[in-house]
Write a protein that binds this DNA or RNA. Sequence first.
RNA 1: GGCCCCGUAGUUCAAUUGGAUAGAAUGACAGAUUCCGGUUCUGUUGGUUGCAGGUUCGAAUCCUGCCGGGGUCACCA
Length: 600
Amino acid sequence: MFQDRLQALLVPALQGAFKQLYGHDLDAKAIGFQATRPEFEGDVTINVFPFLKLSGKGPEQTAQAIGEHVQANVAVVERFNVVKGFLNIVIADSYWLGFMAEAGEKDILGFPATGKKVMVEYASPNTNKPLHLGHLRNIFLGYSVSRILQAAGHEVVKVQVINDRGIHICKSMIAWQKFGNGETPASAGVKGDKLVGKYYVEFDKAYKAEIEALVMSGKTKEEAEKNAPILLEAQEMLRKWEANDTEVRALWERMNGWCYAGFDETYARAGVDFDKNYYESQTYVLGKADVLDGLKKGVFYEKDGAVWVDNTAEGLDEKVLLRRDGTSVYMTQDIGTAIKRFEEYPGLSKLIYTVGNEQDYHFKVLFIILRKLGFSWADELFHLSYGMVDLPSGKMKSREGTVVDADDIIDEVVSEARRMGEELSKLDDFSEVEKAALYEMIGLAALKYFLLKVDPKKRMLFDPAASIDLQGHTGPFIQYTYARIKSLLRKAGESDDQKISQSDDALLAGALLPEERTVIKLLHQFPAVLNEAATKLDPSSLANHAYELVKAYNGFYQAIPVMKEEDAGKRAFRLALSAAVAKTTKKAMWCLGIEVPERM
RNA sequence: GGCCCCGUAGUUCAAUUGGAUAGAAUGACAGAUUCCGGUUCUGUUGGUUGCAGGUUCGAAUCCUGCCGGGGUCACCA
């Protein structure tokens, strides 16, 4: 359990108090801290209900006794009140000021290196279709989790698996051969992935037309679907590919190359990258030996000439791992790829798969199999499962042309950011290039924040209109607050490394204002929030905290003068507070893969 | 049908993992600027947490059963 610096102070004190009062040891984990609700006085609240069995007293009595004890013995405990079983503790200003002083002196946002290496897999596209909105959720989520783990002190290896082989690629290839007339991305003036995707659609059209013709000529639908000439050609092409046919391989490499160039463009624009790519054309041969090894060890069994695993004891089913003809299935290569990764990266302590929740079952089975094969790291595998992105019109379906293209949606949010920006026109001294970069930053912030603020596990609704909002609970709102603070600091002529010193008499003389306290408490919470995000592999809590912080800051900013404050000590303190909010906000947004502008 | 996930203000999402009177945003309406950035702030409005039981000091959260939505159940990937 993560303890922030205040809890680290209070836990031993509470344990000591309990021991003295009731003669029992209190388990640190049983002490539930929560931020005091705004309607009560206090900063932290301790729920004493879990202690009642040990104290043998009623809730109020127990809370009162503990409260009195800690107030008398712990310096930072100023006073307390008891409401039912809730002990609300008021922490002294000196503690919060001390925290701010520490924040000015050292990097409280940085976590010490853990020495652990974590691999995060995300993106994982097919090379026959361009990226769409669902990929964007995947990409932003995977990238953000990588950043969060990095911020938490881990070494992170970002990888993607590219599904570059199989019948679907051959469909695009056949269609291009038949209808392409030698068209290239350059000649057509489109991104490579779009061109390849276009021929995948062309294939489908031609295929359907052929089926219809066959049905007209008296074939059953089923026969027609199996025997349409263009499908047979694609299957033949796959066989040639597997036989290493030079011509087919050359075409395959050429068209995949187009696709990669297109993906890279989108990745660069989305601000994500990878340390290593895995290609299924290489990994699909993996795993076979491992399965045969498992068969020898009796982990798997043979039936009808195929190799099976029996997971009925785990409440799952039986599953084929090698076909009767000895060839692999999807599961086989995933087994092999996982093993290969741990070989390639010695000391890897965790492997995270960012893959949609429609594959929950697949990963459950995969992890069980690897455990059965006896790999010590099998317990460190994690399926970062996320829900589908729905549209207001319903589910995205490629067949019905309702998929939202990744590049299109990015274009849309960026041009909306431009429209809003020009309307306000505060950037007259910006060059066109600077403006373009800024609108790109704002548009992407809107999109990323929109997709990341929701609990990844949950299916979510993508409302295009709401995703380009710049107000309310959005990325641009956070960016705006950041830019505003930076403007304030520029005017004050101070760096963002504002420092305050605890010994500053002027500070300690005056009590903290409630708005200041609220902001400080949120800053104080940040390391715990980051830690939680890293543990749960969930950026949404961090996204929400960043919003709460800037919202609280805006409240402070509105109500309390900073530059206008005449007392130099107070002014310095408020500038330092502002600087700390900027720094923390920037870090939080960095963890989400979102940039913040100095001006906007 | 078996298994898995989800049902929370009109809408989109939260809820410190079993804690106090379930909170934000958005929408609508009403306000605030001798001010450091009004892309701001304050307020009003809005809930039988799908339904019914159960567990206990306490349930949106855990258990059971219904209802509704989605996913998944190939010798496909």
